[in-house]
């Protein structure tokens, strides 16, 4: 399978260019620092220890913020990694020699996607598992749905990677990367706007948020990750306040709807199709 060879080559390149090493080291530093922070959580100012339930509550909310940062790093890395893939290989001419082998253009796009997806999932899973282990060791707390958390964070990375890859079939790396990043921030803002719309019962804002969410489902998946991290008590408390807190990008009272998850899968297939379409006719 030529696509698997291309996928292998993609992962190989990331590791040879020391990208994996840099990410690994930075991630270890962050996890170390947050671990140290978690061990200090119990110490209140007057020298007394906070009760365990409070420690867990604070830990649960801190974790959401930390994971938000990880998800952000993953999103940016996915974009930086994917946006030059095809365009730079076309420009440098590296692809000419490869495509003269029994390799279809589809194999190239599929192989690049698979390789990048492996990198995204490896990073999401690796960083999340380490962070959760450290959290558990320091405070004894674990979020209620750790597996879903990893799936949602990885999904966010894969969506951005797929978008950047599609753009790279026709646009220079920098251009595609900037477009994908702007999309990512717009989706985040769109999520907040939609939530505010719910809180103040403004249908226009709600529709705007929904459209943004359908165009680029990253923020909605982030809300899924938040939901996977919220303890039942917090969810109950948030629900009690009604829709007032819906604009808060670090809160969620519901998991993403099944229909929305299906939409996300469709979105991925469609944007991947667009990549193939973009590359199929590209002159080399």
């Amino acid at each position: 399978m030529a696509a698997l060879t291309i996928a292998k080559l993609t992962v190989w390149e990331a590791s040879r260019r020391r990208l994996l090493l840099a990410l690994l080291l930075l991630t270890l530093v962050i996890i170390g620092l947050t671990g140290w922070g978690f061990t200090k959580l119990g110490e209140a100012g007057n020298g007394q220890r906070l009760p365990d339930y409070q420690i867990r509550l604070i830990a649960s909310q801190l974790l959401i913020v930390i994971v938000f940062m990880f998800a952000g790093v993953l999103a940016l890395s996915s974009v930086f990694l994917a946006s030059p893939t095809i365009s730079s290989d076309v420009e440098s001419g590296v692809l000419l020699a490869l495509l003269a082998r029994p390799v279809r253009r589809l194999d190239v796009v599929l192989g690049k996607w698979l390789g990048l997806a492996v990198l995204v999932v490896m990073y999401a899973a690796g960083a999340a598992i380490l962070e959760l282990l450290v959290l558990w060791w320091a405070t004894g707390y674990l979020p209620p749905r750790p597996v879903e958390l990893i799936v949602y964070v990885a999904g966010e990375g894969i969506i951005l990677m797929t978008l950047a890859l599609a753009l790279s079939t026709r646009l220079a790396g920098m251009t595609g990367g900037i477009i994908a990043l702007v999309g990512y921030f717009m989706a985040w803002i769109g999520g907040i706007v939609g939530g505010v719309g719910q809180a103040i019962h403004n249908d226009g804002l709600v529709t705007g948020g929904l459209i943004m969410k359908l165009l680029l489902p990253t923020d909605a998946l982030w809300r899924g990750a938040v939901f996977a991290m919220e303890p039942a008590t917090v969810i109950a408390a948030l629900k009690a306040t009604g829709s007032a807190g819906a604009g808060n990008p670090f809160g969620a009272t519901e998991p993403p709807a099944t229909a929305f998850l299906l939409w996300t899968v469709l979105w991925l297939v469609a944007v991947f199709g667009l990549s193939y379409w973009g590359f199929r006719r590209r002159a080399l």
Binding site: S92, G93, V94, L96, A97
Partner: peptide, 15 residues
């Protein structure tokens, strides 16, 4: 048939 064909492009760039 490309299994039986060799090619060196004008821009010889390899990884």
């Amino acid at each position: 048939v490309r299994r039986r064909v060799g090619y060196m492009p004008e821009l010889f760039r390899y990884q």
